[in-house]
Nucleic acid binder design. Structure first.
Lengths: 213, 213
DNA sequence: CTGCGTGTAATGTAGCTGCAATCTTCGGCT
DNA sequence: AGCCGAAGATTGCAGCTACATTACACGCAG
């Protein structure tokens, strides 16, 4: 399958590389600069959509087309919502695939980043704006960064080191409860704005954001 | 058909406008700012793909999804190659359409050199002219460049390095608050002209332009 | 020469942010 | 169950830093 595709691409003077595993694909995406990534879902070392999600999480801008046998509407919706830009199910016409690749390449790499929303809270990483219950709420920089980091993984624990890294990118900062202080201030604002989410501490590990009981 | 779609979108709090003809669609695209354009092919006054081609010819950046009964592979290829970003044939599942619209909206508009307009401010990169509330306002070169860079990504943060790069293309220019000074002067002019947009600082990162509260 | 554009520097300022002191909560242990 | 220690929560405060603004000087163009 891959071989046939590579051959078709080569015949049209499209340069392409091929790898078999998610791990390799991730490495290639990290190093190389590609116009488009074509991805199957059922791969030797896992589910292709996990790679999509991982790349998007890191804000990797490469356009991604998922090409797979899993073709129900639900499959398609899942694929697109995981961050893929197009989804084509087998069987497919090679000409259509090529046209879709052209469309993706034409459009270029993404500039945008997904709106993060959870409960009645939504975060726009592009403008660093946060709205709660529909109205804009101002957050200072560091508080914003903490909240954004939490919102990138709602319902999941984000470790203290991760949070500190998110806020103090390179700068060194150790030995204080600065992070706790930020959390506290964020909580106060969430309360003020009547957010339906809350930040819970996970002892010895970190924090997570989740919907209020 | 259009009514059903509008209803489905409205139910999900997606704002949408609907027109019946190519002429109207063209007018709307020219005036308004839309995240995505959904287009049928067989329209009362012509072939939808002609509109796609016309918009692309003018470098219109809006993502376009063609939604039509014409669903052969050739139809699809033609649609995509005319400049559309996605092509969905009837019959289709509403959920898939919505997912595809999300994907397009996520990715955002293509870069372009057409009129940049936001709020009551508009910038013509070709002539380097700026109008506020309909009347032309003179900006010196450097101020113009800063404002254009911001207007290329309204509501998004533009980093200081990006801005500096935009203004001082090759020349070396470090160690001063020249950029801040420009921003300040631009702000003064925006105020004078009663612009409905404002420039906000994002601490430690850069600036962004957005509509005034 | 004059006027505008632009970089620099000085100065002002707001409000973020880290800290520490104190209080509260939680989990483990007997 | 109850106690204790440690982790987390909270809050006032003070220093500071990044940004804002203004004035000024230099340079180039008409």
């Amino acid at each position: 399958m891959a071989r046939a595709l590579l051959e078709a691409l080569r015949r049209r003077d499209v340069l392409a590389d091929h790898v078999r595993t998610i791990a390799d694909a991730e490495a290639m995406a990290r190093i190389g600069t590609y116009d488009v990534l074509v991805l199957d879902r059922r791969l030797p070392d896992g589910e292709g959509l996990d790679l999509v999600a991982a790349l998007r999480q890191r804000r990797h801008p490469v356009p991604i087309l998922v090409l797979t046998a899993l073709g129900t509407v639900d499959h398609r919706v899942d694929g697109l919502d995981s961050g893929a830009d197009d989804y084509l199910a087998k069987p497919f016409a090679i000409e259509e695939l090529l046209a879709r690749l052209r469309a993706l390449q034409r459009r270029g790499p993404a500039l945008s980043d997904r709106y993060l929303s959870f409960g009645n809270l939504s975060v726009d990483p592009r403008s660093s704006e946060i709205s709660i219950a529909g109205s804009l709420v101002e957050f200072p920089r560091r508080e914003y960064l903490v909240l954004e980091a939490l919102m990138r993984r709602p319902n999941r624990i984000v470790t203290r080191p991760n949070l500190i890294e998110a806020v103090y990118a390179l700068e060194d900062e150790i030995g204080s409860n600065a992070l706790d202080a930020h959390i506290s201030r964020i909580r106060k604002k969430l309360l003020m704005a009547e957010a339906t989410v809350e930040i819970r501490a996970v002892r010895n590990i970190g924090y997570l954001i989740r919907t209020k009981a």
